[in-house]
Nucleic acid binder design. Structure first.
Lengths: 133, 133
DNA sequence: CTGCAAGTGCAGTAACATCTGCACTTCTGT
DNA sequence: ACAGAAGTGCAGATGTTACTGCACTTGCAG
């Protein structure tokens, strides 16, 4: 669904963080240097794709994100899971947990969430595959 | 690091799954229809980027993946985490677990892994200590 | 040896992302 | 009022992805 190029993503990040901005503001905060016109071409593309909207205030257009960060993340995550984990979110969790990158603290959080999450199982019909260790 | 376009990814998936293949084989298994020459242009690009290698067998070239699936996944995941979770893997885990998509079985697996991850620390050579928030 | 399907290189098109330059308009300070 | 800074649309250059078509080469069946 949401599919951002690196340049577009930089813009979206700023809009997600700061709300409504005009090109000049975005340009100032943009990672690295970018020409105003270059930046505006990103905005035009994002506008065409419907990921941002704009409204005129004074002489300038103020842009704001239409597509939300959470939703963009979710669709990116879904792609990752489909592409690399056979569509199984559990697979991804396994990889994450096994991938030596979790601190002790992370594991504590994880256990707490796993236990806490149990209450919320109403909507899950379980026929996902299980994994042997 | 590894950065695949949809077309490239389709090819890589097949190579990861089947090992060494020639264009004709890939073409047959490629999702949807694709012309042989179109497919070969993907292979050429992947070859230029160093993601695949090839060797001549008979009259055909056999291609195989150089970049590994695990490593591609990891770098994709890292990008996702950097772009959407402020670089915190834990953030991602929270989102995953909270995102309504886990079945009861998933949660069981998860608890087992979280617990196992702690007890089993000695055998999983994860003596890396990293910074925390 | 020869026909031919399978394989190959190469050239070129189309869409899109990235980025530049330029002329024009609009707000603001003095 | 008007100069200049800030903003705008538009046209186009460049590079990459995603393809298509075509002429040439190669291995094998007969």
């Amino acid at each position: 669904m949401a599919r951002f190029t690196p340049g577009e993503l930089n813009v979206m990040q700023l809009l997600w963080k700061h709300g409504e901005m005009k090109p000049g503001d975005i340009q100032d905060l943009y990672p690295g240097e970018i020409k105003n016109a270059a930046l505006r071409s990103y905005l035009t593309i994002l506008l065409d794709k419907g990921h941002v909207s704009r409204r005129k205030v004074g002489k300038a257009f103020f842009y704001k994100a239409v597509t939300r960060q959470k939703s963009a993340m979710r669709s990116t995550l879904k792609q990752l899971v489909d592409n690399y984990c056979g569509g199984s979110t559990t697979e991804l969790l396994m990889s994450l947990i096994r991938s030596e990158k979790l601190s002790e603290e992370d594991l504590v959080d994880l256990r707490r969430l796993a236990d806490g999450g149990e209450k919320d199982k109403t909507s899950s019909r379980s026929n996902k595959r299980r994994k042997k260790s």
